[in-house]
């Protein structure tokens, strides 16, 4: 699975491409964590628009990042999920901890706004 990182202020936007399964999850975790550290970001947006497949490994990736970041006062937001991806994340109650937005801009604006106020 490929990833593209974009940095907006303190926010890392991680765009995922392809299939997220247990095989791919390890690299997604490592690459995301190292990008967060390298660029000194506080908040994280996962953009799932280009994800063609995800199994329960995605739950672990998101909740793992949530745990890490929230311990340091950061937040995680998600955008662009297909209906099936949303169903899977819902089963584990991910959306009670992590906010979902229809577009990447809404996610970034939300995290930015909270930071200012």
């Amino acid at each position: 699975m490929d990833m593209i990182f974009n940095i907006k202020e303190n926010i890392l936007v991680a765009e995922l491409f392809g299939e997220l399964d247990h095989h791919a999850a390890g690299k997604v975790r490592e690459d995301t964590d190292s990008a967060m550290e390298t660029y000194g970001c506080r908040d994280l947006v996962f953009d799932f628009t280009r994800v063609t497949f995800m199994d329960s490994s995605g739950i672990g990736v998101i909740l793992g990042r949530y745990r890490k970041l929230s311990a340091a006062g950061g937040r995680v937001a998600i955008t662009g999920c297909s209906l099936t991806v949303r169903n899977i994340l819902n089963m584990a109650g991910v959306f009670s901890l992590v906010d979902y937005f229809d577009t990447r801009d809404e996610a970034v604006n939300y995290l930015n706004r909270k930071e200012v106020s």
Binding site: A25, S56, V61, I88
Partner: peptide, 14 residues
């Protein structure tokens, strides 16, 4: 330690 969600069987059932 490895961030597994424990949701595999739940997903299969659903």
């Amino acid at each position: 330690g490895d961030e597994r969600s424990g949701m595999g069987f739940t997903v299969m059932e659903s």
